[in-house]
Simulated assay, not measured.
Amino acid sequence: MGSLDLTGRVALVTGATSGIGAATAALLAQRGAHVLVAGRDSSRGESVVAAIRGRGGKADFVAADLREAQSVRQLARRAVDLGSGRVDILVNNAGIYPFGPTEKAAEGEVDTVYALNVKAPFHLVAELAPAMAERGSGAIVNVSTVVAAYGAAGMALYGSSKAAVELLTKAWAAEYGPRGVRVNAVRSGPTRTEGTAGMDEELAALAAQAPAGRPAEPEEIAEAIAYLASDAASFVHGAVLPADGGRTAV
């Protein structure tokens, strides 16, 4: 049986300065990984790192603006340096989730959503997966959303970007899986985070449609991510794991 233990692994988590990313970074570190906390806000990033180190874990902050391809590739190279030559686990969590009518979306907003939600994971995988494949092992976990699975008014832009990520997950599993790199995704439901703090009514309405009947806590999504990143999921390739309170099951 595979283990949840991640001792000796190097994990890069994007969007790790708050919310699901911060919870994931904390959990991976708790299970033994050296976690590279990536984000734009250095003060929040250092706070996440300090909390991990305070619990005896190993972590470093890496500043990156994932909206620019060059910055994304620089992040990958910096992560490899901090990881003593490798990254074993990549968690593509960073993303933005604007809601609203299609006709109200500015062209710049469309470009930004796709740059961060689709292009950044693409470039990180392009930079890091080949070396994982050369070593014959690695795990990539992409964070998706429940609205990638069904049509929802006001969520065309966000949902479509994550639907692209889910297809990339399967394509990358086919591409890198034969060489030992597992690529999977977690399809998260409405989650209480700093980013959704002002959306209590919207979260409650979305959560009411699912059997669980409540929004998730970031730690609950992190558990699903950590499972897919671990050897416990050794025979799981190209899966999209719903952590959505059952929303896509009903």
Rank of each mutant, 00 (worst) to 15 (best):
Q74W: 13
E107L: 12
M132Y: 15
Q70G: 12
V146D: 00
A156W: 04
E109N: 08
V143S: 03
A64Q: 02
I89N: 07
A164T: 13
V125N: 05
E103P: 00
V143D: 01
R86P: 05
G154A: 10
S71P: 01
G138S: 11
R67W: 06
A174D: 11
G100N: 05
M132P: 15
Y176W: 15
V146H: 00
L124E: 00
P178L: 14
E127S: 15
A69H: 02
R135S: 15
H123L: 14
V141I: 07
T102N: 02
E134F: 06
Y176R: 07
I89S: 06
Y114K: 02
R86I: 04
V141D: 00
I89Q: 02
V72Q: 01
K104N: 11
G177N: 08
I140Q: 05
V146M: 00
N142C: 08
S71K: 06
E134K: 14
A64K: 00
G100W: 06
A139K: 10
P101Y: 14
G108D: 11
D111C: 10
H123I: 00
A105L: 06
P178K: 13
G138D: 11
R135N: 14
E109Y: 02
D65F: 00
L157A: 03
N93C: 00
L168S: 00
G151W: 06
D81I: 07
L75S: 06
H123F: 04
R135D: 09
S71R: 12
E109F: 04
D65S: 01
W172M: 05
A63V: 01
Y158C: 07
A120C: 11
L116C: 09
K119D: 07
S71Q: 11
A153M: 06
A63C: 01
N93F: 03
G100R: 09
N92G: 01
E175S: 08
S71H: 13
A126T: 15
L128D: 03
A64N: 01
G136F: 06
V146R: 00
Y97E: 07
A105R: 09
L128E: 03
A171E: 14
A94P: 06
A115D: 15
W172V: 04
S71N: 10
T145E: 09
R67N: 04
T169Q: 07
N142D: 08
I140M: 12
Q74T: 13
A171W: 14
G108W: 10
A153T: 07
V91N: 00
T102G: 04
A126R: 15
R135F: 11
Y150Q: 15
Q74F: 06
G85A: 04
E103N: 07
A133P: 02
F99K: 09
V87T: 01
D81M: 09
K119H: 13
N117F: 11
R67V: 04
A133S: 14
A131M: 10
E107A: 13
Y158A: 10
A94S: 09
A69T: 03
V125M: 08
K104W: 08
S71M: 05
K170Q: 13
A105N: 07
T169M: 13
A94C: 08
G159H: 06
A153Y: 12
E127M: 09
A106I: 00
G108A: 08
R67A: 11
N117Y: 12
A115E: 12
L116R: 03
Y97D: 13
E109A: 05
